[in-house]
Amino acid sequence: MATNNPIEKQAKKRAALTDTNLLLIITIAVFVIMYVCAVVFLGKGFAKPQTFFNILNENASLIILSCGMSLVMITGGIDISVGQVTALVCMSCAVHLDFNGGNVFTAMLIALGIGLAFGLVQGILVAYLNIQPFIVTLAGMFFAKGMTTIINATQFNVENEEFVALKSTRLTVPGMGSTNKLGEYVPAYVEIGVVVALVVVVVLFCLLRWTKLGRNFYAVGGNNQSANMLGINVKFTKFMAHLLCGLSAGIGGFVFFLHVGSGSPSHAAGAEMNAIASSIIGGTMLTGGVGNIAGTFFGVLSLSTIKNIVASLGLDEAWWTNITVAAMLCIFLLLQSVILANKNKSKK
């Protein structure tokens, strides 16, 4: 085949632009434009690296939850239990540390155990019993919510020394610090949770990109009958997606716990919606088969940046953030719907 064939050149151009890449580019562009605008119009606060790191610190657990959510959404499902599972993890760990005299390591195991248990049960119900994922995880959400209250109904701060030490550990980022009003140099820092979140992002990114299981997620989400014909175990693939999502809810829950250092039934309320919104903004399609962990990461950043912008505009009442989030969600959903409709049309 001749390489100077114009048709082929055109094809090559299109080759790079898969749906996933297209949506990823949109997301990154949205984030960059938003951040640059914030720096230009809202002044120095946003220019400081620490502002960016604080966004990471605040949202480490959301990043992890969103990554798990993206996995499920790529296979064409959804998991709305992650927020309440986070609350349950926080409460269980808090009670374990302060009332039962446990140590941090066992607390971590509890967190992972809870996440896996939810992933396991929900995965079986969705994949092997073929029940709508929304209903299953809605029940999971309410179960976790109820259990949290049953374990302990009130908020309290954890005082376990080992834990408090871990919680207040700050990792300095060299060369990113700034001088404060008194002229002292304040080093920039991130919390441990951020490192965990970045590791999760990298691991899941690699999983989706280079492993067979990861590619099977896309195939199942793209067309699960075709996937079956292509020799993929569709049920197992769906099950694994839910299991991994549950696991990441466990990890995310612990990271959240590490950030807030307390147990409360109202922790992480609405986190599932933020996770879904981040995934959608990050270019994961609800219909499945399209999405990218890198996109999800930028989705979370976009979402939290817009929240910060809303706050620094003086519109710090909670309703403005929710309304902006919903509006953003709506726009991205419509965008996806339109892309999908166009594709179907062009095929016919």
């Binding site: 119900l125 019993l129 029940a139 999971g140 309410f142 179960f143 109820g146 209250t149 049953i150 039934p265």
Partner: peptide, 16 residues
């Protein structure tokens, strides 16, 4: 708040 846990169990039994 704990009521939701019981209801969740009812839902799961029903859908299963």
């Amino acid at each position: 708040n704990a009521i939701s846990a019981y209801k969740a169990v009812v839902v799961i039994i029903l859908v299963v």
